[in-house]
Design a binder for these strands. Sequence first.
DNA 1: TCTTAATTAGGAATCATTCTTATTTAAAAA
DNA 2: TTTTTAAATAAGAATGATTCCTAATTAAGA
Lengths: 147, 147
Amino acid sequence: MNQFEQLKERLSEVGLKATQQRMVIFHSIMTSKNHPSAENIFEQVKSSNPSLSLATIYSTLETLVDKGLVKKVLVKDGVMRYDAHIGTHNHIYCTNTSEIIDFEDEELNQMIKKFLASKNIENLNIKDISLHIEGEKIDKRKSVKIN
Amino acid sequence: MNQFEQLKERLSEVGLKATQQRMVIFHSIMTSKNHPSAENIFEQVKSSNPSLSLATIYSTLETLVDKGLVKKVLVKDGVMRYDAHIGTHNHIYCTNTSEIIDFEDEELNQMIKKFLASKNIENLNIKDISLHIEGEKIDKRKSVKIN
DNA sequence: TCTTAATTAGGAATCATTCTTATTTAAAAA
DNA sequence: TTTTTAAATAAGAATGATTCCTAATTAAGA
């Protein structure tokens, strides 16, 4: 099954029509390196899909988030960003470059999960846990590396 | 030193004129229970300060954030919210009530900090770390309790 | 008290996002 | 394969939070 078929299947699985637009948008988020905004996706996609409208991007994003195929990523500058990486993971926010860097660490996830389980949080059905690390890139030309 | 004087001092310390508006707005955030938005603050403050404008609230918030007296709090619904609690702490987001609940736990903070220190994150000057717990309140009439 | 640079009020402008509606389309049914 | 139809889309208008602009006001130092 090729990539195209896989996308189609993932949409069908959640009960969505596999439209051209959805596939293009979903694919764009999946392959984007830096947690794109609606506008970013639009820019990335419009040359090969000139008739695809920004309104469609917004409504598709909402649909994909509703169906759990995509997550919203919060940022302090007022523009929503999106992430096709659904599993529990953490983010590093570079305040001086607007980059959002994935920070995956299963050990950390487990540690936090375990800690919270020991805390007994009453009257809350937890859906997602994520650690936000905010900081400034020291050298903007280099990337942030985690060892 | 009374509360009024304290506010005045905190503003002066960071090099800000202690204007009536700033004191009123800062005080409103400090005493607000639920991480207010600009609009919330405006509503809360306007009956006793009828000439205070929404534009002033926004510019004051920006100033207070710049000076580190207030933090922005991220939410997925597109309205920025503010927190006068500056120290490292975590938030619980109730998706069904829009509440943001402080979750303070020094043990958790230390545990995360220690873990990250062991990870050696290169080329990043970390400014803030916070854990976001997202979930649904089970009984909307009751509060979320952490034991 | 005077001076002045900083701050504010209030309305206009902006910009991200959502809404509306006529048109198009995926996919189920025939 | 063709038809049917509910769902999805395009495009532009509308909304709503936030920012901008500028004249008037004010805190605080001289």
